[in-house]
Simulated scan of single mutants.
Amino acid sequence: HPPPYPQKCILPSTTKDPGQGTGLGLSMVYGFVKQSNGHINIYSEVGEGTTVRIYLPHTRQNEEILASETPTAPQSMANEVILVVEDDDTVRATSVELLSDLGYTILEASNADNGLAIVNSGAKIDLLFTDVVMPGALKSQELARRAKQKLPSIQVLFTSGYTQNAIVHAGRLDEGVELIAKPFTREGLAQKIRNVLDLGRPSASTPMPSAPLTCEVANHDEGDALNCKSILIVEDQILVRKILSEMLEELGHRVVGTGTIREAKEKLSLQNFHVVVTDLGLPDGSGLDIVQEVMDNNRHVSVVISSGRDASNDITDMLCNSRIQYLEKPYSINAMKIAINKAILM
Rank of each mutant, 00 (worst) to 15 (best):
274 H>K: 05
30 Y>Q: 01
202 P>I: 00
53 R>D: 03
190 A>N: 15
318 M>V: 03
336 M>T: 06
343 A>R: 00
340 I>T: 01
133 V>C: 09
49 G>M: 04
290 I>F: 02
174 D>M: 14
292 Q>D: 10
242 K>D: 14
205 S>I: 06
225 A>M: 06
142 E>R: 12
40 I>Y: 01
143 L>G: 01
143 L>Y: 04
178 E>V: 14
217 V>C: 14
184 F>R: 09
335 A>K: 02
217 V>A: 15
104 Y>P: 06
187 E>N: 11
113 D>Y: 07
341 N>M: 15
326 Y>L: 05
151 L>P: 08
141 Q>A: 14
236 D>H: 02
176 G>N: 11
230 S>Q: 11
326 Y>H: 04
219 N>K: 03
33 V>M: 03
182 K>G: 14
223 G>D: 11
195 N>S: 13
273 F>E: 03
257 G>C: 02
300 H>K: 12
240 V>R: 01
105 T>Y: 10
76 S>W: 04
319 L>S: 02
188 G>Y: 10
116 L>A: 06
106 I>V: 08
168 V>I: 12
7 Q>W: 11
260 T>S: 05
1 H>S: 13
330 P>I: 01
253 H>D: 04
337 K>C: 06
126 D>R: 11
20 Q>E: 13
263 E>D: 13
330 P>N: 01
180 I>L: 12
96 V>A: 10
220 H>F: 04
107 L>T: 04
267 K>D: 08
223 G>Y: 11
124 K>N: 07
95 S>P: 11
147 A>I: 03
229 K>A: 08
80 E>Q: 13
252 G>P: 05
95 S>T: 14
203 S>V: 10
36 S>F: 08
345 L>C: 11
204 A>T: 11
70 T>D: 14
209 P>T: 10
263 E>S: 13
96 V>H: 04
219 N>S: 03
320 C>Q: 14
302 S>Y: 01
330 P>R: 00
253 H>R: 02
342 K>W: 05
221 D>A: 15
346 M>W: 14
295 M>S: 09
250 E>Y: 06
149 Q>C: 11
189 L>M: 12
135 P>I: 00
32 F>T: 12
130 T>V: 05
99 L>Q: 00
162 Y>A: 06
29 V>M: 09
150 K>V: 05
40 I>Q: 00
312 S>P: 09
145 R>P: 08
